[in-house]
Design a protein around this nucleic acid. Structure first.
Length: 269
DNA sequence: CTGAGATCCTGTCTGC
DNA sequence: TGCAGACAGGATCTCA
């Protein structure tokens, strides 16, 4: 489910817990993408939350001496629920308990993960992440450099979390459409002008998706229960056979790295 | 080092 | 309806 905009939307929804004290974490199912360690429950009792932020697709909840790292994987989501509202949903795997409310981690496919670390910056899942696409350092020069060094096609490059973080399968297709670049174009053939357009497109698409509260394709809801509306704005993703919103040609679907990829054969080169 | 492919897991949809 | 198979927003690991 979640790419950068959905994670950002989730972080914003739970940011109201900043400065609140986490009473405890209860893990119902430790078998996530990685086994949830006992430390997560044992070392997170009565911790004041100093900061809540997003890094790549990770939700980071910082305490004084440690940080909780939550990844939503493919189907994970957080929801905020009143303590007294005592109901469970299938696949509720963990609960962050506060005085009146709790944050529940629900993840049917269990590709998500929860870690507690004393040094998140050097955690193995964080330390090799690439730059944030919405930061100033993500510019045409940077993109041009990584494209030049790569033998992959452009879609694979922009989805490589070691290079650029946060861009997943939906927004990769959407950004490439906006930049009028074919997803299977060889990265090494990308011009500086292409990079200019693509950087602008990625930023624009991500910012707009955040503004719309993310994309609700099947069942993404923000932690506050709101639906995301970016799916109404999708230009090519999931629109195989439908007409391109620009030129009217049929939207094509191909596979790139076992992921569905959508583009307009007419608009994108 | 790079890159392709398999893999983790459940739910939903499509086609026979 | 039933059932098999494909597919789904991620990303790591293995192997060549």
């Amino acid at each position: 489910m979640p790419e950068l905009p959905e994670v950002e939307t989730t972080v914003r929804a739970i940011s109201k817990f900043k400065n609140k004290t986490l009473k405890e974490i209860i893990v119902h199912n430790k078998n996530l993408r990685w086994k949830v360690t006992d430390k997560v429950e044992l070392a997170s009792k009565n911790k004041k939350i100093k900061e809540i932020e997003r890094r790549a697709k990770y939700i980071l909840i910082h305490f004084d001496d440690s940080s909780l790292m939550i990844h939503l994987g493919m189907s994970g989501k957080l929801r905020i629920q009143k303590i007294k509202n005592n109901f469970f949903m299938k696949h509720d795997h963990a609960e962050l308990i506060f005085s009146k409310e709790k944050i529940i981690f629900n993840d049917p496919r269990r590709f998500g993960s929860i870690h507690l670390t004393n040094d998140f910056k050097h955690h193995k899942l964080i330390k090799n992440l690439g730059i944030e696409p919405l930061s100033k350092s993500f510019n045409k020069r940077y993109l041009f450099d990584i494209c030049n060094k790569s033998n992959l096609n452009i879609k694979k490059v922009i989805m490589d979390q070691k290079k650029i973080v946060g861009v997943g399968n939906i927004y990769a297709s959407e950004s490439l459409f906006l930049a009028k670049i074919k997803p299977n174009k060889s990265a090494s053939k990308i011009s500086m002008d292409d990079c200019h357009d693509l950087v602008k497109s990625i930023k624009k698409v991500l910012r707009y998706a955040i503004k719309m509260g993310g994309t609700t394709l099947k069942d993404f809801y923000s932690a506050d229960g709101n639906e995301g509306y970016f799916n109404l704005e999708l230009s090519v993703y999931g629109r195989e056979g439908e007409s391109c919103k620009i030129c009217g040609a049929k939207v094509k679907k191909i596979n790139i790295g076992q992921r569905s990829t959508f583009y307009c054969q007419n608009c994108q080169n």
